[in-house]
């Protein structure tokens, strides 16, 4: 299953943050994921490669508890993925998907302040997090007046704000300038150093290979 292992010995001994066993996901009758077995441990970075439509995004959404397994079982931070209480672990997950989810009518700072208030985080951190991703001058700009790249950067600021224990990144390096790519790598390293874990889905093999302890390949919904 794993293409290579180069993570520290203590990683494999730790209790898994994510544990999937025989998980399948179907959209109606169409299988998206089949018999997926996966464990992600604290301190680990897992890279996932696969062609378009292989099931990478569905796998990330599954791990984020945003998609439910059709078959099999899984836990995230020890909480069953089918449990009605699974929303409670989501505040420990940082998920960056293809499309930024900012409210277009609100400024970047207001969007971030909403997240902070929703999670009980001190709103005073919002400014410094936006500063850290190079958006100091765009704090008060409405999200719909920011470029896609700026909105992506703001998502990295959200990760700095919420400090998740599990970082899930879907094509994190796409459409980014060199500085922003470095930001992504910094976020991953920061999360892992805090004892968290990261899962990256990407077509940028070289980038991900430089970050990941383990590379998985997914083909037609199956991890090979």
């Amino acid at each position: 299953m794993a293409a290579r292992h180069r993570y520290p010995a203590e990683v494999s001994e730790a209790i898994a943050i994510v544990s999937l066993s025989g998980v399948a996901v179907r959209a109606g009758a169409v299988p998206i994921l089949r018999d997926v077995n996966l464990s992600v441990h604290p301190g680990e970075v897992v890279g996932i490669f696969g062609a378009n439509g292989a099931g990478k995004t569905t796998l990330l959404r599954l791990v984020a508890t945003m998609t439910r397994p059709s078959e099999g079982s899984g836990t995230v931070f020890g909480t069953d993925m089918n449990s009605p209480d699974r929303f409670e672990v989501r505040s420990r997950i940082g998920y960056i998907g293809h499309t930024p989810g900012w409210y277009p009518e609100l400024t970047l700072a207001e969007n971030m302040a909403f997240v902070a208030a929703a999670m009980g985080i001190d709103a005073a951190k919002v400014g410094s997090c936006l500063d850290a991703v190079g958006l100091a001058g765009a704090k008060d700009r409405r999200a719909d007046r920011c470029s896609h790249g700026m909105q992506r950067r703001a998502e990295f600021a959200r990760v700095l704000l919420t400090e998740p224990d599990l970082l899930l990144l879907d094509e994190p390096h796409s459409a980014l300038d060199a500085d922003a790519v470095d930001l992504v790598d910094g976020l991953v390293k920061r999360t892992v150093e805090r004892g968290g874990a990261a899962v990256l889905v990407s077509h940028d093999h070289a980038r991900v290979e430089s970050l990941a302890h383990r590379i998985l390949r997914i083909k037609e919904g199956t991890i090979t």
Partner: peptide, 11 residues
């Protein structure tokens, strides 16, 4: 994406 953002706050 907006619904995901809200859900992932754990509210």
């Amino acid at each position: 994406a907006q619904r995901d953002m809200v859900a992932l706050t754990g509210m």
